[in-house]
């Protein structure tokens, strides 16, 4: 049913496989048996009109929503347990639209939030190590932030987006889910973020991208998966389609 368009997944176990996912909220059937496969290092653009169920599907992957039925496999291993921690244990990281950064904490502090290194006896945070490793992490992703001591609240939208993505990548995920990463960014910052997505996928991380900026998808996505009213509607290859074709597919035609 799915796959076939992407050569990388044909011979190997897919990085992510979601099978027959259903979810209802009362009488409303949001997802009605959706399948999704993502290969290693593949960038998949998940598209669909509002209410198509793409956000719900991604929240399931990130452990924030539990499916009624269906299986989620990461590298052939079934996702067990619920909650964001279980998802993280399986190598899934999601960067939410609202960024979830602490404005009053500096860059290094945000990158290390929840996993700060500290001295065993004095309980003192290892500030020097956090700043050093934060600078290294940012440099690896070609993110240009001159000082990791800056407060995140004083930075531009693009820089904040980059930090949020760098933070997710620091957990060395196998799959990175990005929800509207380029919304509300200036043109130059969009380009920065798209380059960051390419860099991340080159490191072997699979990326699933939700965005309303369809032109961005043509720049980074290896494949489009179109959802319509809670079912798989179509899979498209960016090389064989154009913006009009994608929009037509999104409308369920």
């Amino acid at each position: 049913m799915t796959g076939g368009l992407d050569g990388g997944t044909a011979h190997a176990v897919p990085r992510v496989e979601m099978q027959g996912i259903t979810k209802s909220y009362g009488a409303l059937k949001v997802l009605r048996g959706v399948d999704l496969r993502v290969g290693r290092g593949e960038v998949v653009g998940l598209v669909g009109d509002n209410g198509a169920g793409k956000s719900t599907l991604m929240k399931m992957l990130a452990g924030a929503v539990v499916p009624d039925r269906g299986r989620i496999l990461v590298d052939g291993e079934e996702l067990t347990g619920t909650g964001p921690r279980a998802a993280r244990a399986h190598g899934i990281e999601m960067v939410y639209q609202d960024l979830a950064l602490c404005n009053d904490v500096d860059v290094a502090g945000n990158l290390f939030l929840g996993r700060e290194p500290y001295h065993r006896f004095t309980r003192k945070l290892d500030h020097a190590r956090m700043h050093r490793e934060a600078a290294e992490d940012l440099a690896k992703l070609h993110i240009r932030i001159s000082d990791t001591r800056q407060l995140v609240g004083n930075m531009s939208g693009g820089q904040r987006q980059a930090i949020a993505i760098a933070r997710a990548v620091a957990f060395e995920p196998r799959v990175l889910v990005l929800d509207e990463p380029t919304a509300a960014l200036a043109a130059r910052e969009v380009e920065m973020t798209l380059q960051l997505i390419r860099d991340v996928s080159e490191r072997g991380v699979s990326v699933i991208l939700i965005t309303h900026r369809l032109q961005d998808l043509f720049e980074v996505a290896d494949r489009f998966v179109v959802l319509h009213e809670g079912v798989n509607h179509r899979e498209l290859d960016p090389a064989d389609t154009d913006l009009t074709g994608l929009v037509t597919a999104m409308m369920g035609k």
């Binding site: 964001p84 993280r88 979830a100 602490c102 404005n103 904490v105 945000n110 939030l113």
Partner: peptide
């Protein structure tokens, strides 16, 4: 650090586990 983070953006800290 977590005291500051809770006041700054508690959701961020919660998602950090």
């Amino acid at each position: 650090r977590y005291v500051t983070a809770v006041g700054s953006n508690d959701e961020s800290l919660r998602r950090a586990g």
